[in-house]
């Protein structure tokens, strides 16, 4: 199965860090709600490394 990133909403503090590093524009902060576009995300995990809250995880 292809890799993708999922968000733990209980941890996410909707700061936008993950949006700033995603060159595929897969992550989007809608008001205070993080949306990850599964079509665009290839699971590279760069956003996992930048997340201040450990709220993101690569799964397959």
């Amino acid at each position: 199965m292809a890799k993708r990133v999922v968000v733990n909403r209980y941890r996410c503090a909707y700061c936008g860090a993950c949006v700033a590093v995603c060159k595929f524009n897969a992550n989007e902060l809608v008001e205070t709600f993080l949306v990850i576009d599964e079509e665009k995300c290839n699971g590279c995990g760069i956003c996992v490394k930048v997340c201040p809250m450990n709220a993101l995880e690569v799964v397959s």
Binding site: A17, V19, A20, V21, N25, I46, P52
Partner: peptide, 26 residues
């Protein structure tokens, strides 16, 4: 529109940050 800016990308300015071009903060 802040660190997560979309406007620049829509206009063709590549603003994507690398992992050594950003500070992650709490």
């Amino acid at each position: 529109d802040g660190v997560e800016s979309r406007v620049g990308k829509w206009a063709g300015i590549d603003t994507t940050l690398k992992l050594n071009e950003i500070e992650s903060c709490v």
